[in-house]
Structures are given as structure tokens and as C-alpha cells.
């Protein structure tokens, strides 16, 4: 059951082109891979909480990997160790863990939920991570991914790993693909095997009530990203 926690920041530092935030919430919490938390931005001019999918969870500590994209995440990146964050979750559904040979595709900061997912999956896993340029990743971060699965990296400028887009390097030899990243990336995953993708939209209530975050499925229905998702069978969406 989601809950509002008063979490204390124990770590909030730049790591390559991202930030790594770890919050101690003072009690054990059970989080499924793919679920997210809403963090309150303590500024009067910012109303909506910001949604972050779980990067890692260990006993009473929750970690998030995020990119600074606007004034909300800028504010968050400036919080120091010891700051008390108002954090609400876990929210949303989760990735299914039934695959035994999985390809985990992450574009940019979309790599975040794949780490906790990779730790939770059984069997062979391979990460296929993409970014515009190699400096996006910190070596320490890539090593953490490499510890739990095979790792292949792709950069648009070819400065690290293969050159191009992650979607050019997807093959069909896996049982399932798990993906998170920009919407264009998710749309261009065209394979015959099942694809579960985590979607991102502006979230208001976060628990399915306000109907603000809906997306349209291929069948023309509206589904709530915060409650029916954020993880969807991508073949039902695109």
C-alpha cells in the first residue's frame, strides 16, 4: 500500500549526466520493479510532485537515478544530505518477472528502472543501454549494471560502444524485452517477442483518481499511466 514518507537524503550526487539520489525512509518497504514514487518539490510555485521510478531498493533505503530536465528536478538536485524529502509511494504496477532470457533496453535516463528489474529477474539478462554521447554514463554506474548482466552500450555519436540508436541493435533471440526511454525509442521497437515498456507522462494524483495522465491505446481506450501503468504491453499502445 502506498504511503507518504518523510525520507532523509543520504546521497544526492551527480553521476555522469544523471543524479543518484538515495533516501532513507526509516522503515522497510516492499517495492516491485517498475513502480514509482512521487517526490514533493518544496517550492510554492511548483504544484505537481515529480515521478521517479525505483532504481534500487534496499531495506529502508530507496534509490532513484534522474536527469535534471526542468526547475523541479533542478530543485531536487540542489538538496543536500540530511534534507527531509516528502515522498509518496510505491505507486503503479510493475514489470512481470516471468521471463528467463531477457533483453533490457534503456534510452538515456530510461535505464533507471532496469537496474532493479535486472536484479529481480531470473535467468540470463542483457542490458542494452543508449545515450547521445559516452560522457552521459559514469564508469561506476556502468559497472553496477555489468555486475548483474551482460552489458552492451550504444551512443549516437559513437564516442562509446556501438554507434547509432539502441533500437538498431535489438534482436529477437530473447524471450522478452523490457524497455524504458524516450517515446520515439519505445515506438520503434518492432519485434515479434513480448515487449513491456515503462511510460512517462505528467502525473497529478499518482493513484488513479484524477484521470489526468491517460494515454490512448491502439484500441482507442484511455489508460491511466499512474495506475494501469506505468508498465504496459507496448503492443497494446503503439
Amino acid at each position: 500500500m502506498p504511503k507518504i514518507y518523510n525520507g532523509e537524503i543520504v546521497e544526492n550526487r551527480p553521476i555522469g549526466g544523471l543524479f543518484l539520489l538515495t533516501v532513507s525512509i526509516g522503515e522497510m518497504v516492499s517495492v516491485e520493479p517498475g513502480q514509482f514514487f512521487l517526490i514533493r518539490i518544496d517550492r510554492e510555485d511548483i504544484i505537481l510532485r515529480r515521478a521517479f521510478s525505483i532504481f534500487d531498493a534496499d531495506r529502508d533505503k530507496l534509490s532513484f537515478l534522474y536527469r535534471v530536465v526542468g526547475k523541479g528536478t533542478r530543485w531536487l538536485s540542489e538538496r543536500e544530505v540530511g534534507y527531509k524529502l516528502n515522498i509518496f509511494g510505491p505507486l503503479g504496477n510493475s514489470f512481470s518477472l516471468d521471463s528467463e532470457r531477457s533483453l533490457l533496453v534503456g534510452g538515456g535516463s530510461g535505464m533507471a528502472p532496469l537496474y532493479y528489474l535486472g536484479k529481480s529477474l531470473k535467468g540470463d539478462i542483457k542490458f542494452l543501454l543508449g545515450a547521445q554521447t559516452g560522457s552521459f554514463w559514469d564508469r561506476e554506474l556502468l559497472l553496477r549494471y555489468a555486475e548483474i548482466g551482460d552489458l552492451e552500450i550504444v551512443t549516437e555519436d559513437g564516442s562509446l560502444g556501438k554507434r547509432g540508436l539502441v533500437t538498431q541493435y535489438i534482436d529477437n533471440s530473447y524471450k522478452k524485452i523490457y524497455a524504458c526511454g524516450p517515446i520515439e525509442m519505445l515506438k520503434s521497437i518492432r519485434v515479434d517477442i513480448p515487449v513491456e515498456g515503462s511510460l512517462e507522462t505528467t502525473i497529478a494524483c499518482g493513484f488513479g483518481a484524477c484521470r489526468g495522465c491517460v494515454i490512448e491505446t491502439r484500441g482507442g481506450e484511455y489508460r491511466r499511466v499512474c495506475k494501469d501503468g506505468p508498465v504496459f504491453n507496448l503492443k497494446e499502445i503503439f
Binding site: I46, I47, L48, T201, R211, G212, V214, I215, Y222
Partner: peptide
Amino acid sequence: IGNPPPRIEETIGGVINSIGLE
């Protein structure tokens, strides 16, 4: 069925919504 997405936009000190009575 309500309005097509996007239905929410944040402004300075506010939120614009267009749910459309779903």
C-alpha cells in the same frame, strides 16, 4: 470517455486540466 491526452499542464503556481468529465 473524456478528452484526448495530454490532459494536464503545469503552470507557475497552478495546473491546467482538461479531463473532459470522463
